[in-house]
């Protein structure tokens, strides 16, 4: 099975280990990833908060490049990039006038042939026996709180592959890896996203609540699918402890890292050495 791969800016920097682990896990599962040559930033929240046309056009360039590459649907690990590309695809498909206008802006047309799928959706859709066959180091009942965040599941008219209030696809993968997904109520609460840079106190309150609810649910770790969520929950965890006087020490890893660990891949190949709060299952 082959896909066109869109990494996105964060996966080359703050979310480096998401890129590493996504490639390693896909490699093990026999999924070919052909990166879009010369892809650009999806525009993220700053673009859609500034100009609707700019947001669609920036994503449309990537969609057109992927389509021209002809290597199949686009698979996106980052929840935010995934949602931006999927929104642009939907709007371009529903509005011929917009498609024409955007093609004039970018100088490239996108006919809608290349679809957009999140990596979670793709891995969740694999044959479970195929996945189970790769598990050589089951996680021994490790309790994991699956944190989906906002953009993987919302708005459902765009994303649509999982329940927007109680998504399960990550829980199912985590269970296959031998861990125990805990039931909890903060699966899709917002982490504050880019407010970490612009208004940190707001993000720290949201992160504190997410960590607290995960801990009360008995979680040993959080599992996520977005580099912004991961950074807020992991790298800013020390800031939360400092500001609120808490003592959180919850590892926050990408679902691809957890899966890769169960597949027996090395910490280095999965970028597990890059986490702030160390992940040491069984210790």
């Amino acid at each position: 099975m082959n896909y066109t791969y869109y990494a996105g800016c964060s996966l080359h920097a703050t979310g480096r280990e998401f890129d590493l682990s996504a490639r390693a896990v896909c490699g093990r599962l026999g999924i070919g990833l052909a990166e879009i040559p010369d892809w650009n930033c999806c525009g993220a929240s700053p673009a859609h908060s500034t100009s609707h046309l700019l947001a669609v056009a920036l994503s449309a360039r990537n969609l057109a490049l992927a389509e021209a590459q002809g290597a199949g649907d686009i698979v996106v690990p980052c929840a935010a990039c995934y949602q931006r590309l999927a929104v642009a695809r939907k709007e371009l498909g529903e509005d011929p006038g917009l498609r024409e206008q955007v093609a004039r802006i970018t100088g490239r047309d996108y006919a809608g042939r290349a679809g957009v799928r999140s990596l979670l959706e793709v891995l969740g859709g694999l044959d479970t026996e195929h996945l189970k066959a790769q598990v050589t180091r089951p996680l021994g009942g490790l309790k994991a709180a699956c944190y989906y965040g906002c953009l993987l599941v919302r708005p459902p008219a765009v994303t649509g592959f999982d329940d927007p209030e109680d998504p399960r696809s990550m829980d199912d993968l985590v269970r296959l890896a031998g861990a125990e997904p805990v039931p909890w109520g903060y699966k899709t609460e917002c982490c504050g996203a880019a407010h970490g840079v612009a208004n940190e106190p707001v993000t720290l309150k949201l992160v504190r609540d997410i960590l607290e609810v995960a801990r009360r649910a008995g979680a040993d770790c959080l599992v996520c699918a977005c580099p912004l969520c991961q950074n807020n929950l992991d790298a800013r965890q020390e800031h939360v402890n400092r500001v609120f006087g808490t003592d959180f020490g919850l590892p926050v890893l990408y679902f691809t890292q957890l899966l890769g660990w169960a597949f027996g891949l090395s910490d280095r190949d999965l970028g597990l050495d890059k986490l702030f709060v160390k992940f040491r299952p069984g210790v």
Partner: peptide, 18 residues
């Protein structure tokens, strides 16, 4: 301000430099 700086980075490099 964050939005402006972010988009300026994308406009200049094609990608966001965190």
């Amino acid at each position: 301000l964050f939005n402006r700086i972010f988009l300026d980075s994308v406009r200049r490099h094609g990608r966001a430099h965190e």
